[in-house]
Design a protein around this nucleic acid. Sequence first.
DNA 1: CGTTAGCACTCTCGTAGGTCGAGTGCTAAC
DNA 2: GTTAGCACTCGACCTACGAGAGTGCTAACG
Lengths: 338, 338
Amino acid sequence: MLTERRAQVLRLIVADYIETATPVGSEQIVKRHRLELSPATIRNEMAKLEEEGYISHPHTSAGRVPSDLGYRYFVEMLMEEPNVSTDEQLRILHQFHQATSELNDWLHLSASVLAQSLRNMAVVSAPRSAQSRFKHVELVSLHDRSALLVVVLQEVKVRQQVLALREAATQDDLGRLSRKLNHLFATLSGGQIISRSGELSPLEEQIAIAIGEIVQTEDVVEFPDPHLEGIRNVLSQPEFARSDRMLDILEALDGRNIARTIPQAQVGEDGVIVIIGTENPENVMHNCSIVLGRYGGASGPSGMLAVVGPTRLPYAKAIATVRYVGSLMTELMMKLYD
Amino acid sequence: MLTERRAQVLRLIVADYIETATPVGSEQIVKRHRLELSPATIRNEMAKLEEEGYISHPHTSAGRVPSDLGYRYFVEMLMEEPNVSTDEQLRILHQFHQATSELNDWLHLSASVLAQSLRNMAVVSAPRSAQSRFKHVELVSLHDRSALLVVVLQEVKVRQQVLALREAATQDDLGRLSRKLNHLFATLSGGQIISRSGELSPLEEQIAIAIGEIVQTEDVVEFPDPHLEGIRNVLSQPEFARSDRMLDILEALDGRNIARTIPQAQVGEDGVIVIIGTENPENVMHNCSIVLGRYGGASGPSGMLAVVGPTRLPYAKAIATVRYVGSLMTELMMKLYD
DNA sequence: CGTTAGCACTCTCGTAGGTCGAGTGCTAAC
DNA sequence: GTTAGCACTCGACCTACGAGAGTGCTAACG
């Protein structure tokens, strides 16, 4: 536990560093904040803070930089969590009102808003249920032996696939078949659908299995259809000025493998969790932080939204904004799908 | 028109520069290719080539670098266009065989293959018709007053939208309605659908208009759903080593506004066109080249595939590979959708 | 006349040295 | 406990300099 004054010094170091991105020195700190203390005193406090691991030296004669532990302490104990300013709220609301009723559109929009607001990167995943369930199927004839299979899931996701049919079928045949399967499979899970496919005719069985597999794949994907926005914001941060650093980060994100870099921590109903630098098991993320939230009702499908940036992240604003945007998304989802 | 020998010198300069990315000097060139001439002679030829604008000096004492005009001459007159090597063909075919029958999947795959093969960036757009036409609609009830509208277009694209219904309707109502609209609107364009919506009941009209708008938006988009792959390849090229250059390029691509950067040139049936550096009207692309091809049958929906990289692009291989992958895609499309 | 050897010149790049300024840590005094 | 004073450290920036690559020019050669 830090003494009051020491904590304040830490707070100022973190705040200044987040703002300026340059190591902060003892004299700077007293000047900027008109402290009643001399730089020497601050230096003493800094020495203690460093001893305890909250800050560190890039090299002998540079100012101090918060360590991951320092950021953690800041987030946990020092930061006052602001509400999103009214201006900002209006700006965001305004953008949300332009959202169409297409799921992907507004996921994209949310990511975009977050990224812009925080001048960092944002990731938003599509909603996902604990277990996805079948809702509706439709078969559209393409040729006498091929058809487009369109599956709608309970979470209002639409999946599609072209099937080479085992036997020829007209659109009428397919219409009848769809109706039968819709009736038979309503609200079933992928596994259940597959296990019941044996009792059907060969063609029906083929289609049932295809449907079952589609429904099942949804269960495997952790963060479905992640929308990524604002990579450029992150890359233009000074910590990535060196181009090799840039490439490292891009490597981590390029391959749609963001899922790996975002730990599947449990986020409570309205909670937002913060993962700082080395707290992330993934190596490439060791100098990045993540502010992770969720949207969607307590039960039913829910999704993830996150802000990703260098550890020098404006945590307070990020947390508030993630929470705010999350709540807007929840609201919108309720309105549209429930 | 260049003399035979001068053209050969140009050819070597372009080839070497594409390979090594460093300005090529007169002595280097004779050594590497065991020419029977002295460096001095080459220098004379180089001076002429520079005078005529085919190559240039970065500074007084560096080797020569091809200009856009030089690349153009190379592509037009000097390059022997290789077939894709058999190894490469096999590698690509192998990857194509893993494609699922989902349109987006294999667009993605194609982009990925191109990017990997050429170690540059690839863009592949979804197929698009001159005018898109309605094929099938399905309404899935979500609530008594909201429904998911799923529209299938003739090009086997699926579009979706959540609708707040003007009046309450059960799934049965919606099923009947879908069947009616399917019958009524088969193979119509968006405009036609909208113009016929007046004769319908209010609810039907609402839905018809929504469908019409969905179909119409397809006509506006130039390169629908572009799949972008291999940004990292391009960014790790030495010409983008400086991080500000990287950001410039990312800016050009990040915002899904690739369409602007790729001129909508007419690409013939089996043709591949090459856009070199400043030939592109878009400023940001002034030190990039594009090798642009198309896939799809002569009539009916067709799409675009392209390789994008620095002007120092392996043109010969790029053209061959774009052509090859394009033909595979055409084939696959015929098989699946026709 | 085309080709070539010779040579002075130019420009980049890497290295080494030198100064400046910001910041630290320590000591001693208040 | 706080502070002034001070020596010290180290990166950032500038300059100088030599090495290396490459050029352009001139004059000689076949």
